[in-house]
């Protein structure tokens, strides 16, 4: 099984506009729901505080990988649910945004990969912290029990 997420979405906005929404740290923060300390710079650490309701205690930290204007933006995202964790020691996933000009505007392809790096307890935490997680989890448990019996 491929342990990655891939999403494709068409946006009715020019590539330049989408690029700015992805790479301007204030704009990124708006829709991603994170308050970043400063601009994204390739090869450098991006720090901030999550503003997503229910996750506000969490820090955001990523290492910007690639910034190829209007084409590719990627970063290594550190995952931790412990606000006191030494985030550099925490496992990362790779997040990539690819942009492509289409007639309607922009095709954006998002991939997140490297989930196999994340330990199980982090996954369990994700369910505990996630609002919808437990509802979802109940379904999973149900499915699991159904399969097992």
């Amino acid at each position: 099984m491929s342990e990655r997420i891939e999403k494709r979405i068409e946006l009715k906005a020019p590539v330049s506009r989408v690029w700015r929404a992805l790479t301007d740290y204030r704009e990124f923060g708006e829709w991603f729901r994170v308050k970043l300390d400063g601009p994204f710079v390739a090869g450098q650490i991006s720090r901030g505080q999550i503003t997503y309701p229910g996750y506000e205690h969490l820090k955001w930290q990523a290492i910007v990988q690639k910034m190829e204007p209007e084409r590719l933006f990627s970063f290594l995202w550190h995952h931790s649910f412990d606000p006191h964790a030494d985030i550099f020691k925490e496992p990362t996933t790779l997040v990539e945004f690819r942009l492509e000009k289409i007639e309607a505007g922009t095709r954006l392809t998002l991939t997140e990969s490297g989930f196999e790096n994340l330990p199980e307890n982090l996954r369990l935490e994700a369910f505990r912290r996630n609002d919808g997680g437990w509802t979802e989890q109940m379904k999973n448990i149900e499915n699991h029990v159904r399969k097992a019996s």
Binding site: E3, F115, E116, E120, R123, F127, N130, G132, G133, N140
Partner: peptide
């Protein structure tokens, strides 16, 4: 935790986010 929080279930949550 494996049966309860397999990687697939985790990916479903992340995917939704």
């Amino acid at each position: 935790p494996q049966p309860l929080v397999g990687i697939k279930e985790y990916l479903d949550v992340v995917s939704e986010q």
